[in-house]
């Protein structure tokens, strides 16, 4: 059952990205282009997504475990730290440069465009670089990492 849930969630997530046109990098860049010809579409997508996702969190509130095993993810206990802020800042730069974030990157692979393929290879290389500890923040004395 867990495997069916995982597949169904991936399919529904992907259909949502397609219908809302978030698979189109130009659309994402137009949202980030606040000083230019601003396109609020991504804001509507986020608003819709946060609406149903918060309903799910409200349903989850009295529960300790998920319906098909595992625990309801607890609130993160780590504080806002340097890795969170630096990592998010670096992600935002990459997002602004190309207009693709991880979800739409995978969905857009089906377009068969070499540009998306290059982006994905670089993105997965970046993830691997960080996962294997080959990319570390230099110590800048900005507080605990």
């Amino acid at each position: 059952m867990r495997k069916i849930i995982a597949l169904a969630s991936g399919l529904l997530f992907s259909f949502g990205l397609i219908i809302s046109d978030m698979v189109n990098p130009a659309r994402v860049i137009a949202f980030l282009d606040v000083t230019g010809d601003w396109d609020p579409t991504l804001g509507f997508v986020m608003g819709g997504a946060i609406t149903t996702a918060s309903i799910a969190w409200i349903i989850a509130r009295p529960r300790k475990s998920a319906y098909f095993g595992g625990t309801i993810p607890p609130m993160p206990t780590q504080p806002v730290d340097r890795n969170l802020v630096t990592g998010s800042a670096i992600f935002g730069i990459g997002w602004g440069l190309v207009g693709i974030c991880p979800g739409p990157a995978i969905v857009a692979m089906s377009f068969g465009k070499w540009e998306v393929a290059v982006f994905i290879v670089a993105m997965m290389a970046g993830m691997a670089l960080y996962n294997f500890g080959w990319f570390k923040l230099p110590k800048l004395g900005l507080g605990p990492a």
Partner: peptide, 16 residues
Amino acid sequence: GGLMIGTATGILMLGN
């Protein structure tokens, strides 16, 4: 599309 994406995250969180 947003409502679908949010529902997808809800299914994964509540189910798994």
